[in-house]
Amino acid sequence: MSVTAATEPVLAVRDLHTHFFTKTATVRAVNGVSFSIYPGEIVGLVGESGCGKSVTAMSILGLVDAPGRVVNGTIAFDGRDMRKMSGGQLRRIRGHEIAMIFQNPIGALNPVFTVGRQLVEAIRTHQRVSRREAYRQAVALLDRVGIPDPEQRLPQYPHQFSGGMAQRVVIAMALANRPKLLIADEPTTALDVTIQAQIIDLLAELNQEFGMAVLHITHNMALVAESCARTIVMYGGKIAESGQTEVVFDDPKHPYTQALLGSVPDLDQPEQVIDPLEGFPPDITREWPGCEFEPRCSQRFEHCSVENPLLREVSAGHAVRCHLYPAAS
């Protein structure tokens, strides 16, 4: 799906900074991230663990746990700045217009309440419907996400569900109020590979059917290639590269993206040497004078350790934050 500039983005994040203030240091988990998501679009947000992708998601919903805090930036949802909203206003958006699903589906369901009760709660928090009507909706939702015998499943407890089934329940809960945006934080990481594919397909179907935008956060490049229209690569709390998925995958510009793609084994080319990225994620407790990726970069040159590069467009919709690519004229 190609995006025209005329459409208003459903979510526009500008210059987001989320820092964690621990006793000994300030951890700059998200350090100046900007991106937009347009209606009905699936965007992949990829990067190593600790690169700030999950914190970005929590920042959008205003759910960053102490000692973390969003220190700067705007998060515009449907043109309204969420950072200026009161707690009550935020809660009307959470679970209603923006829904979220988590990595560990069993953990995301409260173990002492039945699945039905938690679904009904999600529905009745945002819709004025009777308990009976909410229950009817819950049955329909479970049916829609592909859970057999929804009526029998509703009175059961989370521990009676398999991981894949539980993730379907969580997705059903997220869909309950027809959100405009679904944030999926590593939705398949905790699941078996076969189940992974089913969940990804389900998300794609629901995206088509309900027209909701999806922000898919993952460390798995293959999943992004499969399902996302656009890809954002994060490194050290900043965006390294972003663009249409085909473009980013076919012509990766940033050395980090190249390294990430190089470490994905390609079944079509069994002879290919897998080239894992060496070194460790950067120390984000200090502000880097140069590029965060410089210590691990195979193409670094002198300038890299002096100046922090800016995110520049190299072609339409394709942006890279690297000194190798001065601004396209």
Binding site: L63, R94, G107, A108, L109, N110, V112, F113, T125
Partner: peptide, 24 residues
């Protein structure tokens, strides 16, 4: 995670703390 989930569902704070939190 289910407390995050409860927040993400947009539940009022008292419900997050005193229903989901306290019950477990």
């Amino acid at each position: 995670d289910y407390i995050r989930m409860a927040h993400a569902k947009g539940l009022p704070l008292w419900r997050v703390y005193f229903l989901h939190g306290l019950r477990t």
